[in-house]
Design a protein around this nucleic acid. Structure first.
Lengths: 194, 194
DNA sequence: CAATTCCTTTTACAAATGTTAAATAATCAG
DNA sequence: CTGATTATTTAACATTTGTAAAAGGAATTG
């Protein structure tokens, strides 16, 4: 498989987490679909129940929602990152969140129901997704800790260290809401630390 | 098995999530150990790498850490709740968090390494833990959303609705840090809404 | 049950962040 | 390239939350 094949690339990234047999890789690849989305388009919109698991192949995307008409970014995803609206996918309830591209982006889309069926036969595939889930869970707990008792400035400093790509490539208004503050407030913080 | 046997009770709760064969139940039960801890004692202390998965059988506990000498509660656990320091258990790094009882509490302790080994043979057990993880992940995402853009008062209102048991039974200082505010601030909020 | 300790509230003031509006700066489309 | 749109910064003021200290309540222990 050529390495510029998005699915091959994803499988390669998976192998650092969990070894998959060629057979599973084949069955998994059968489910995958490549999707190209232009900048600032919604991949999934608010109100749908999420039944698809996405990985970013190239580009960047975010999960966002509206809190009293204000656009709030919950999550940023870059190359090889998993992007799911977990609170809908794992509960079957409609999501009040949407997925939007931040630039021209190609995704790999995996319909969840057939993937979950594959788990019955392919233990290692279920394990892979368990481990991906562990990783996302740990990341979320770390963000929770940061939101719970760090000041806005500390959170911004942490973000600059941990995800310089976000600070470099994402509009400030999205970063601000991601950090739980207003754009004006973030602007002020940047003025003091520079 | 009598229903006041903690392990039997836990297995019963598991069955609402994922059916387990009698064989797995037996193997799982072999790993479980009951632990009784008096009120305000640490079950696990700061600095250890976490290799144990706990469930609360009876009583209540919290995960907490120190942010610049201030005690911050990250999580509350009650009957049948899973209580793990995921950021350590899933990464192998030492935890800067501790687990402490809020009253006399009995836990079921499961050493993680042999549990994870059981996953190789017992697919349904791994699936159960995957689903428990999904549940915890969704809860954490919901808390993240609440911390990200709700006011302190909204977060308190949400907590009163979603977890009245917390508001009823837990000292306010712990609730305050759980909500990401000071005790004084929470006291003020309570004064305005009552 | 008295004393001690811990928990919660209140007060006064300080600091951080939000709100609104306007001014720049940067980007995009024709 | 130019006007229009979008993004970012700045300013002034309002509100929320934090800090420190004190006082009142509740719970625990000897």
């Amino acid at each position: 498989m050529p390495n510029d094949d998005p699915i091959a690339r994803l499988l390669k990234a998976f192998n650092d987490i969990q070894n998959l047999s060629p057979e599973v890789e084949y069955k998994f690849a059968e489910l995958c679909k490549s999707i190209e989305v232009k900048k600032h388009q919604n991949l999934q919109s608010i109100g749908q129940t999420c039944r698809t698991i996405y990985f970013v192949n190239e580009g960047a995307a975010r999960i966002y929602y509206y809190k009293e008409d204000k656009d709030v970014t919950e999550y940023f995803a870059f190359e090889n990152d998993l992007i799911i609206r977990a609170e809908s996918l794992f509960t079957g309830k409609p999501s009040h969140k949407a997925i939007q591209t931040l630039k021209d982006t190609s995704f790999i889309a995996i319909p969840a129901p057939p993937l979950f069926e594959l788990f019955d036969q392919y233990h290692d595939l279920e394990r892979l997704f368990r481990k991906l889930l562990e990783k996302s869970y740990v990341e979320t707990i770390n963000r929770l800790e940061s939101l719970q008792f760090q000041t806005a400035e500390e959170r911004y400093q942490t973000l600059m260290t941990k995800s310089p790509v976000v600070v470099r490539e994402i509009p400030l208004k999205h970063i601000a809401s991601y950090l739980g503050i207003t754009q004006v407030s973030l602007s002020r913080i940047r003025a003091t630390i520079t």
